[in-house]
Simulated assay, not measured.
Amino acid sequence: MALAVCLLFDDRSDRLVRDLWSRLEDAGVSTLATHTHRRHHPHLSYVVLRTWDLAEVQETLASLPPAEPFGMSFHGTIAFPRGRAALAPAISADTALRQWRIATALESRGCELHRSYRSGRWVPHVSVATRVQGARLPTVVKAVADVLPMTVRVNRAALVDSGTGRTWALPHIP
């Protein structure tokens, strides 16, 4: 499967996103709450790796300068192919630069990144719906619009195996 470098949220922010997932599930829309192994956390992925060596990834990320916890606000919905819908965040130039540094550092170590997370290709998002059919997209957009604007606090980072949900905390926010 894939390994993601994820930004995770404080308890209040995690609950806000999970509440949105619950509202969508109640409306018949599949979310990360019920997707695959059901161990997903609300998150923003900096990168998703298709091939990796865990120790090498951890070492590479540990060598990057740390970031302080920060706020991130959402102002809309993004619809991706194959039925994925997400919260659209406003991100700082510093966050975009950090993503680029992480992608570049991991690519230079021989990791294969998912094409959407390679340097210069990243579209920041926080997934909410996983397999929404076109006719159900207005339900998602309305549910998201009802909670916007929403501000969350990023307070930690982790590596997450998307196939199992296994998580390795990172010592700092890269």
Rank of each mutant, 00 (worst) to 15 (best):
A105C: 02
L24D: 02
S127A: 11
T60N: 03
L54S: 08
R136K: 10
E59S: 13
G28T: 05
I102H: 09
S127Y: 11
R38I: 08
A103Q: 07
G110D: 07
R98Q: 15
G110C: 04
E25I: 02
G71N: 10
T31S: 07
R98M: 13
A85E: 10
V140F: 05
R136C: 02
R156G: 09
T164W: 12
T95D: 06
F70R: 10
A90T: 14
H75P: 01
G165P: 08
P42I: 01
L54Y: 08
V17M: 06
A85D: 04
F74R: 00
R115W: 02
P124F: 05
S119Y: 09
H40D: 11
T95N: 09
K142H: 07
H35R: 12
L24I: 03
L87S: 06
R109P: 03
A157H: 09
C111T: 06
T77A: 03
A145G: 15
L159D: 02
G28P: 03
R156W: 13
L61K: 05
L106V: 04
S119K: 12
V132L: 00
T95Q: 13
G83H: 00
G165R: 07
V48F: 07
A145D: 15
D161G: 06
H43Y: 12
S22G: 09
I102N: 01
E112N: 04
W21A: 09
Q99V: 11
T51I: 05
L148G: 03
R18G: 11
H114W: 14
P138K: 01
R39H: 10
A145I: 05
P66N: 09
S119R: 13
R18T: 13
R84Q: 13
D26M: 01
V132T: 06
H37P: 10
H75R: 08
D94F: 10
P69R: 11
R136L: 10
S92M: 10
S30A: 08
R131L: 00
F74H: 04
H43L: 06
V154C: 07
R115N: 00
V141M: 02
I91N: 06
Q99Y: 14
T95C: 11
V140M: 04
W100D: 12
H35C: 08
S92W: 12
D94Y: 11
M150R: 04
W52H: 12
